[in-house]
Design a protein around this nucleic acid. Structure first.
Lengths: 335, 335
DNA sequence: CACAACCTTGCAACCGATTGCATTGTTGAA
DNA sequence: TTCAACAATGCAATCGGTTGCAAGGTTGTG
């Protein structure tokens, strides 16, 4: 059944039906309700494709998610934070009457984005995890405005970002670990990822300022490690590198680190104090419960969605930081 | 730039351009390559909305994912298996040139599906987790054929499913735990979920057949528990209920159970042997590494996608089981 | 050479909504 | 009573591709 059929039933033109269903003031309140009732009664559903075509929109936002596959194409150790964010984004977009088109980067050529926006398959794009894509994003943003990225603000960037204050996060972690008496600190994270590096910078600067003679090492864990750093951490401690405090750039990494340490008979928090980042919902239930930097998904999703809609409507929008706070739990041995 | 512009540049009609870009045999090899070259040169991209409209398709498959929110709308304890599957589905769909429209159930009215397929926003739908939706799905499937569900085959169902052999899985777990000498078995799972119940049925039947006097209890963990059963398991052991073997209906539950037991000073596997289900990628790296039933996401995604395309093309398709095998690791204390 | 058969291309209708403008009907003021 | 102003509705063009059918051009055969 199409609109003209419904128009026939209602005894009006399809223009009127179109306006009635769109709640236009041009058509009488009475006619409007009558037509809506008829539409419901006869189970009329508007053809979304026709409307999208004519109105030159898709009511869809593309969300690009980092999911590196290893060489065998096996499922990766994906950050649960991504899934939580995805859920939050779906909720926010639904409120705005938009759908969420899911795409993973990894097997997609980076030109995916260009292809995608130029075929007008989506009205805007949200990217989770800028990672190593900063340069490509920066270039694409030059001629595609409806782009918002979850991640770190970078110097001279052409796109807008929403993210926690990574530098502050690193600072908070450093202060806390030092306060707990740690002397030999280690950072576990991906050194090619801007977010991760800003966290490290805040961590390092703070440590060097407060307790200059503190030992500070790095375990560089690139994304392609399917085990989330398990092996790297094991190797690190088996090499007898000293460590009494560990800052992991994500809760996923922190969790794997705890498992690796435990398998080496090292106790958390008594031997090594650990802090994660993301405050994923399961961090509260880990053993020991994980101290972490909170990044509120719901707030983040709201801001990401608001900004992408601002851009779609031709309005200005600025990069923004979301609240960033340390959540102290058992893994750093307080009380 | 639209197709007619490109046609003008090429000095042909837009019909020819359309055919050339669609690789139609009706147009000379030579003209085809020439037009494609021109298209690339001038950066022409076809308007996806126009094509979708005219061809009456969307090149998009809706994927409905279970993500229960608790009453405060906080992010749920989502099964990592879902995310792995989502990634695998994205890969499979990309191979077929389709996009993946993501939707979560929870805040969506169950009529979402109906709304969705009737507005022709997607060409087909894949549902992950049939859970408590069996009846609704069964009704919708009556007049919407392009529907495939990941889950358990049910008596008199109108939709097709792809899933592991849950009964067999439960049986394998029972055999293994009994073989390891367990006498007091517990099942941890959601008793309203068909998959879960089939796993339990296989487990129970096998236990009762092989060692009739084995004690067998159930911890009923509905989805709305945000902690994945952590509290329930803690309470269970604190009530001094005896247990030396636990079958958790998912790896997520198993992981939380291990954490809960550890916090009660109960050792895995020496005090309690544990088996999970799903064989998520992280189960290998848990401490102890988790014995689990393998469900291969890639194979599952392939079958789900194949079947939904079969339905779209009006072909027949049958429900199917994917290979189901026990992966033995440390959590059941072998060697 | 004439004509059939075929290959390549173009014409124009069509998909199902939306929307600018014209038209009809109604109200109120002069 | 007449006509302007306005409210409600209809007409028809339009969005940008796809495709059935017609038309033009070429080749081959009798």
């Amino acid at each position: 059944m199409k609109m003209s059929d419904l128009a026939k039933i209602a005894g009006v033109s399809k223009s009127t039906v179109s306006r009635a269903l769109a709640n236009s003031e041009l058509v009488t309140e009475e006619t409007r309700t009558r037509i809506k009732a008829l539409a419901k009664e006869h189970g009329y559903r508007m053809d979304a494709r026709a409307r999208n075509f004519r109105k030159r929109e898709t009511l869809t936002i593309g969300v690009l998610v980092p999911m590196p596959s290893n060489s065998q194409g096996e499922p990766p150790a994906t950050n649960p934070f991504v899934l939580e964010m995805l859920g939050a984004l779906a909720d926010e977009l639904e409120k705005k009457g938009h759908e969420l088109l899911f795409a993973k980067h990894s097997n997609r050529d980076p030109s995916w984005l260009r292809e995608f926006v130029e075929t007008r398959s989506v009205d805007g794009v949200i990217i989770l995890g800028q990672n190593i894509y900063h340069d490509i994003l920066n270039e694409i943003a030059l001629d595609y405005p409806n782009l918002v990225v979850w991640g770190a603000r970078m110097p001279e960037q052409n796109y807008i970002t929403v993210g926690s204050d990574n530098y502050l996060g690193g600072k908070l972690v450093a202060e806390h670990l030092l306060q707990q008496g740690c002397k030999q600190l280690t950072f576990l994270g991906n050194t090619t990822c801007p977010e991760s590096m800003q966290r490290f910078a805040g961590f390092k600067d703070t440590v060097e300022t407060l307790v200059p003679d503190t030992e500070l090492n790095v375990i560089d864990c690139r994304e392609n490690h399917n085990d989330g750093g398990y092996r790297l951490v094991s190797e690190y401690v088996q090499a007898n590198k000293p460590m009494d405090g560990l800052f992991a750039a994500s809760d996923l990494l922190a969790n794997r680190a705890i498992q690796a340490l435990r398998s080496c008979q090292i106790k958390v928090p008594s031997d090594v104090r650990i802090v994660g980042y993301d405050n994923i919902s399961s961090s509260e239930f880990m053993t020991p419960a994980l101290t972490s930097i909170n990044q509120n998904c719901r707030i983040a999703a709201q801001k990401l969605v608001d900004k992408v809609f601002a851009r779609i409507n031709g309005k200005q929008a600025e990069s923004e930081l979301i609240p960033t706070a340390l959540i102290i739990r058992e893994s750093t041995g307080v009380n």
